[in-house]
């Protein structure tokens, strides 16, 4: 464990707390893409198949349970909770995310570290996580004005993988045979998707203005 990775995990946790806060405090999920949340459930379930087979540390197991539990809770809330599901902007959340699932799975069948069930699903979860934010980013552009909590949620979500990139650079230099080129390349693509969001987020923060994404 290094400071970059710990910062990344904490930033990831903060993004989930901000989203839960927004949904429970405002009893609204307006501006949130249900499709992105569903993709994250698939990402965590596919990635943490080793939850009960490989014990790495208490921290690792607890965080995996928190990520799986919170992502399921958010999807349940947006689909089933009477008050919340009414605020879901279904007509704005139109990204065909099934193609993202299919594409990531096909890519995982072609590009993986070992051709085993667990490794294929791990690579699938890595590729899917890189594109999972797309429905949310498209929805933000469609909905024009972005409320603060939603903007902060996406910001922390993008920042967490940027910390992980620093973690991979650090591990590359400190651990002799450290190689996670799948996660590294995919993490770079994932963070690149946030580039324009980060730009507009910084502009809005600098001008102390509302976050506006160009349509």
């Amino acid at each position: 464990m290094n400071i970059f990775r710990f910062a990344g995990d904490m930033t990831h946790l903060i993004s989930i707390v901000v989203l839960l806060l927004k949904i429970y405090a405002t009893k609204s999920c307006s501006g949130i893409s249900l499709k992105t949340q569903e993709l994250y459930v698939i990402v965590f379930l596919a990635r943490y198949l080793d939850l009960f087979t490989d014990f790495i540390s208490v921290y690792n197991t607890v965080m995996k349970l928190v990520f799986i539990g919170s992502s399921l809770a958010i999807v349940w809330c947006m689909r089933m909770h009477r008050a919340v599901k009414r605020t879901y902007d279904k007509e704005l959340d139109t990204f065909r995310h099934y193609f993202l699932v299919l594409g990531s799975f096909v890519l995982a069948l072609l590009l993986h570290e070992k051709f085993t069930f667990q490794e294929i699903f791990w690579a699938f979860s890595i590729y899917l996580e890189a594109v999972a934010i797309l429905p949310q980013l498209v929805m933000l552009q469609r909905s024009g004005n972005v409320d603060n909590l939603t903007g902060q949620y996406v910001f922390f979500l993008g920042a967490y993988r940027a910390f992980y990139i620093l973690n991979w650079i650090y591990r590359f230099f400190t651990e002799p045979h450290f190689s996670r080129w799948i996660a590294c390349l995919s993490g770079l693509v994932q963070t690149a998707f946030y580039a324009d969001f980060f730009y507009y987020y910084f502009i809005s923060w600098k001008n102390n203005a509302k976050l506006q994404l160009p349509a």
Binding site: D9, D54, K64, E113, E119, Y164, A183
Partner: peptide, 10 residues
């Protein structure tokens, strides 16, 4: 035992 490809990250 460390898992096959060092999946020690989240």
């Amino acid at each position: 035992t460390t898992p096959p490809s060092a999946k020690d990250e989240l």
